[in-house]
Write a protein that binds this DNA or RNA. Sequence first.
DNA 1: CCTAGCACTCCATGCCAAAGACTGCCAATG
DNA 2: CATTGGCAGTCTTTGGCATGGAGTGCTAGG
Lengths: 348, 348
Amino acid sequence: MKGEGGLDKRKAYILATVVYEYIATAEPVGSNTLTQKYNLGVSSATVRNELAELEAGGYLVQPHTSAGRVPSDAGYRTYVDDLMQPEELAGDDRRRIRDELRDASRELDEIIDHTTRLVGRLSKNLAFVTKPQPDTQVFRHLQLIWLSPRSGVAIVVTSLGVAAQSLFELASEIHADDLTRFSNALNARLSNRPLRDIGEDHVAAAASELGIDDELRGAVTQALRAARSNEGATIASAGAQNLLDQPEFQDLRKLRSILRIVEEQKTLYDLVADAIGTEKPSVIIGQELGLDELTDLSVVTVPYRFGEHAVGMLSILGPRRMPYGRLLALASGTAETLSERLSDVELK
Amino acid sequence: MKGEGGLDKRKAYILATVVYEYIATAEPVGSNTLTQKYNLGVSSATVRNELAELEAGGYLVQPHTSAGRVPSDAGYRTYVDDLMQPEELAGDDRRRIRDELRDASRELDEIIDHTTRLVGRLSKNLAFVTKPQPDTQVFRHLQLIWLSPRSGVAIVVTSLGVAAQSLFELASEIHADDLTRFSNALNARLSNRPLRDIGEDHVAAAASELGIDDELRGAVTQALRAARSNEGATIASAGAQNLLDQPEFQDLRKLRSILRIVEEQKTLYDLVADAIGTEKPSVIIGQELGLDELTDLSVVTVPYRFGEHAVGMLSILGPRRMPYGRLLALASGTAETLSERLSDVELK
DNA sequence: CCTAGCACTCCATGCCAAAGACTGCCAATG
DNA sequence: CATTGGCAGTCTTTGGCATGGAGTGCTAGG
């Protein structure tokens, strides 16, 4: 008898077939379906025995006595990790993605947005993309703009465009001249450093050198902090309506909580937050997501890069019964194209 | 016999009651319900006669023979225009809105976003808010930033913050000095003008005066055009999941197309685009929206102001059976608070 | 003009029987 | 000893049907 871990060849094939068939039909699959549609070389009775053992091993579950089998989380996991054959993105899909992204504007937000919509459409599921982590970006320019004797705006530009704008109002009067000198000093000092390496000490050093008062120094520190912060870490999402087509969402309560999660963004972000910075695609299945509302769902998530760093994740959320191979290929292909596109628009 | 237009007092009261009751219960309302729950002073038989006449007049419809009456578009229209008594926003709702908005950040997008979520939550419907029309804003500052010998960024700041950033790459070499001179000249010339009044001729005049080459002049024109353009006219939306609670959306196909419309944004924007700039709240009911997918829905939309101008609309989309009075009060109250908040964060 | 009463229509509900889809088990088989 | 055909048993799904209830329109009488 083989242990839990090592499925013999036939069991593995049967498990793969059950998962495959269930993904395709959304119906519990029984021994007859299997023997008829797939060439197993054994009778349905034999398959029944195997199915019973797969169920005992935790790979399959039965919704009720007289129904076929459905994969469990463990079943999907084994399928994704060991049984599934990797797919490639079709050549013309790849071309289409490239074409669509080329037409998108040169602005970061719009590129991300466009990509997300595209993936939502092609995947027929919910796509979401985290915006590039600000603190991995490279500082390019700080601009202090004089607006009135007591107020101004600080604008921080990174290699991906304007990262933060921050209005400041001071008690003391501002000299336009100070703004220019301070800006110039900071630009000379900080240019091309990663935002995450820029500390208050740099600002303080420049300020004391030039005799800049504390208030203005504080305003600049504040602006840099805002630019660096992953706080407002937002995502773009698209394709929520696709989920409605899935038979598993006839239940409106489930649907409602999913929509809420999508709208909130934060929960969605947290799902993949751990993975940001990693280089490998990953799949999170059902309960592994750690949320009651999402037990019927899975997420495929792949990193995209800006320059050398993996800076964000492109993800697809769909029913646990999603076509993992196809979606992994789609996500990876798109992430690659997105990465290329981002280096196109880099401010160099 | 009174004509179509002029309902006698009793008919008007009965119509109002039917609409009111239907809004509250979502069930077709019959003559018995009316006589029992509301003090009409006549018997149900009389009410039946009146109901039949209201139906003949087009104000009510009957889903089927043995059901009660439901308002038609015309019925709702009459209710909203003539019969409904205007409501006021409760004092503590008003205070709560003010408090919540005060805590929101000082950045335009976040304020709009926050407001939208708040209205979504309080209205228990879908809220959407158009961003302020760029061309009504006032030019404050143009900043040309030198990045490399052949590239730079143009940033346009208006009274509501950064309106556009636009990367430019030129064939000829850029002198940092030219950028500064050109920026200064344009700022002196354009400051405090509404964006919509700024034409290419201003840029051309400044350029020729300073001997700025055509390429750079083009880049700046481009940046100003981007800032002024209402193209990317986007909206914020929140509360889509609330619609699921409404009994009229058990039908998933309807729901799907509504979600798609919400995600696309453009259709939603177009619904209220005509109204932008007007000063009055308005209500659009069912078929008046002009979209098959939205026949069961209505929109309440009210303007908000920035300074002197109405610059955007705050809207609530919900079932045609929505509590118009309450939502109008909520929308108006919030729009007012939003307007105040915007002048707080104006760059003066 | 109003009202009580009544016949009628249509929908919603619950129930039951029949059909269908699987399974698990058993005894027979190569 | 793994495999198989057969079969009884279990559970869900479906359709039909009768019942009850809600509401109407109409009529005749106040």
